[in-house]
Amino acid sequence: MQGQTAQEEDVAVISRVLAGEVNDFEYLLEKYKGYVFSILQRHLPGDEVEDVAHDVFIRAYRSLPTLKNRSGFKNWLASIAVKTTYDFWRRQYRNREVAMSALSTKNRNWLEDILADVSNQSFQAINDRKDAREILDWAFSRLSAKERMIIQLIYLEGFSGKEAARLLGWSTANVKVRSFRARKKLRNLLEGQVKL
């Protein structure tokens, strides 16, 4: 019921913004900035989050007249956030600003430890987040912007092909094909680093 009221509030605010009450957009900004930041923090380097979040809200404001289902503002905003993230990575790859770091021996050993370990308890012990993030960064630097987004949404966050397609604005078939290829590429990358 509360969700319903929140949605109704959103609809009313959007109507006022479209009627020319620009300042009312601050209500949406205040309400959803945490949500947008939480999406962007997972997909972007920390120092880029604020700038991209700024772009997300500007893009949302400009596109507001095209929003048909006003009660679905939150999902629509999430889709804009993901698309803006994708645009960010596309620009980075075009400008070749993605560092092609090499995987250190420590990272390789960490991967091999995971594969060698069987018991769940010691699995937790070697579950070092820092190493995992380094391996992810290393793998992402070898994937294209599209592959990167697909891996992040489907492989790591567990979105379905349909959900990822909605967020990225691509067709479901396109997402499924790219997902298959990207996962295969990632698996080959990881395979190349393991000597067990």
Binding site: F25, K33, S38, G46, E50, F57, A132, R133, I135, Q152
Partner: peptide, 24 residues
């Protein structure tokens, strides 16, 4: 599994106080 867990961990970074004012 390990990579997904690491991915899900969010690094809490608060936005600058001026961020909202700049955007508005």
């Amino acid at each position: 599994k390990v990579l997904s867990v690491a991915w899900a961990e969010q690094t809490e970074s608060k936005e600058r106080q001026t961020w909202q004012a700049c955007t508005m």
